[in-house]
Amino acid sequence: MELICPAGTPAAFREALEAGADAVYCGFRDETNARNFPGLNFSREELRQSIALARRKNVQTFVALNTFMRAGDEALWYSAADDAVALGADALILADFGLMAYVAERYPQQRLHVSVQASASNPDAIRFLVETFNAKRVVLPRVLTVQDIARLTSQIDCEVEIFVFGGLCVMAEGRCSLSSYATGKSPNMNGVCSPASHVRYREEGGSLVSELGAYTINRFGSGEASGYPTLCKGRFDVAGAEGYTFEDPVSLDVIDEIDALRAAGVSALKIEGRQRGRAYVAEVVSVLKKALGATSAERAPLVSRLRTLSEGQRTTSGAYDKRWR
């Protein structure tokens, strides 16, 4: 199975290459990708240099253009696709059907991957994208069990890539409106979930209070590990009981399931984290590379250290190992 690694900057890209990535995914410095954070991402020239470096190391570069085009401003997404193709991207990761159609028609030889943001999670949806746009790979949303994935791969004619480590989105991706509801901006249209412009942190009596727009997301007690200020991982008072309504502040880790995922027909394992620093990329990629070649008994101690880098300093297998509560 391939290891697909994140890069938010050229420095992180180089770290991913050094650490053993089979492919690195990245995006342009604008709203055409779902990690449109200040100071992050690549200029055209930076991408050109990074792709050249990756080629020398026999590593592929995937360019994420995985936000949805805004009516009237399609040119921004079209020109990003034109440039990514011209710069030699090995694959484009797309979510918008209109953009998929544009790429499929203009660049029929260009390899097209279906982004997790397209939320394609059943055989009918995936078959449609394969037949209509010649999609070669689908990145599955983080809402399926390993058994669901095994059933799915046997019914479709394209490669399957899944997230195995990093930030955990628990929603039907590309459809979630929680960030839009609180801030007017979303990962789907603007490339930002819980945009930094609407985030505030303050210390209050030893507690860390995180706010998103007009909402208090969490209050972390003294010494309690904190998390991102996303509504889906907020601590709320519901019907008199305080707790995490959707999900705890926690990261995804399904390295233990590598053998089952391989048996399920998964082609590629993706690490989330384009918004994380190069130190994170270097460590996570190198550890997971080792884990891929290790026995199941050797994996647990290998990946345990990564927990300290994770949101809330805890990890979960999420929906991959779904249990009813």
């Binding site: 210390e203 620093g277 300093q313």
Partner: peptide
Amino acid sequence: CDADALFFSRDLSVSGDME
């Protein structure tokens, strides 16, 4: 060091304009 990890572990605190 990874800034997010240090934030999660509460070794760092940040305030003001997060952008």
